[in-house]
Design a protein around this nucleic acid. Structure first.
Ligand SMILES: [Zn+2]
Ligand SMILES: [Zn+2]
Ligand SMILES: [Zn+2]
Ligand SMILES: [Zn+2]
Lengths: 162, 162
DNA sequence: ATAAACCTTGGAGTTGTATCCAAGGTCAAG
DNA sequence: CTTGACCTTGGATACAACTCCAAGGTTTAT
């Protein structure tokens, strides 16, 4: 039997979060004291851990609500249903990864084209790339003029030594 | 010179989005007609394209606001500033990718442990994994009992033929 | 002249996940 | 009996980036 603050501390969430989960139908305390304090049982704690594990693999609270309703009525659901949810989630996670990979590649190319030095950004390749609609990015080796500093190491020998 | 709907169509955004960008200081029309209609110049269109390109590599509107202020005053900024923004963004994108990769791996393991068949979810490995706090997931080959269907292909020969 | 298609504004709603607040009630210790 | 830690509620706020709405004004085509 835990009061809200105790369960929160036990599971490393905030009491507010537990109230939030209750308001949204994910987890209600099994009882209340006479004065209205929430009382959570060990089973409630288990349910909370279920929620947190599902969150840890990427499910949203809406999806977890669905998982919980299956969990409470397993015999009326099939493996296909459960696996379907996991596979749907997997697909959406993979789609997001693909998008982020695209961002990553673009950002890497931008980063590599820029000297990153104290020179004025007037000839910065990054800004130029954002100004124009070409895919190719020109390195700025020759743009700053050697006077400013002699060995800008952009582009030609750009390999981070890590 | 474009009216809002024209520019929107040209750049494949909604007119609402342009008003939103204006409200948030990213893009204001250069003038208005006597009757109050927004009039965008070609320079405005270029600025919008800058915004959209920056979005396409993952920058948020807040970050784009910063980029735009650099863009309009390049000589007072250095390559280091611009590249710093790109590298910060790259780091945050990579962090998010790492998180999603973790989700992906967990979901793949869950998916592989489940037969995905019409059997009751009573012995579903996915649900069991969410119920308990172990990292290892038990395959459900032996749990459903062969009576229900003879060749559950979970776990042992689980390799999607793609 | 009138209908269709466009434009204006301010403001509300969406999705997701909380977090914080104020005003007040409860409980244990000293 | 007072202090401090805890609890209650409802509602407000936050982020991101839109998206939609209503009520009304303007332009263009027929
Ligand atoms: Zn440079
Ligand atoms: Zn640069
Ligand atoms: Zn199964
Ligand atoms: Zn299963």
């Amino acid at each position: 039997m835990y009061r809200i603050g105790e369960l929160a501390q036990l599971c490393e969430v905030k009491a507010d979060t537990l109230r939030f989960y209750e308001k949204h139908g994910l987890l209600s305390p099994s009882s209340r004291t006479d004065s209205g304090y929430r009382i959570y049982t060990e089973a409630d704690a288990e349910r909370l851990r279920f929620i947190l594990r599902a969150k840890a693999v990427g499910f949203t609270l809406a999806e977890i609500t669905e998982l919980l309703s299956i969990e409470l009525d397993k015999s009326n659901w099939a493996c296909a249903d459960v696996k379907g949810m996991v596979d749907d989630k997997l697909a959406s996670v993979e789609a997001k990864i693909a998008e982020l990979n695209h961002f990553q590649l673009s950002l890497q190319r931008l980063s590599q084209a820029c000297c990153g030095g104290p020179e004025s950004a007037e000839h910065c390749s990054i800004l130029e790339a954002l100004e124009s609609n070409t895919d190719s990015i020109r390195c700025e080796n020759d743009k700053h003029g050697f006077a400013e500093h002699e060995f800008t190491k952009a582009c030609t020998d750009k390999q981070d030594p890590i």
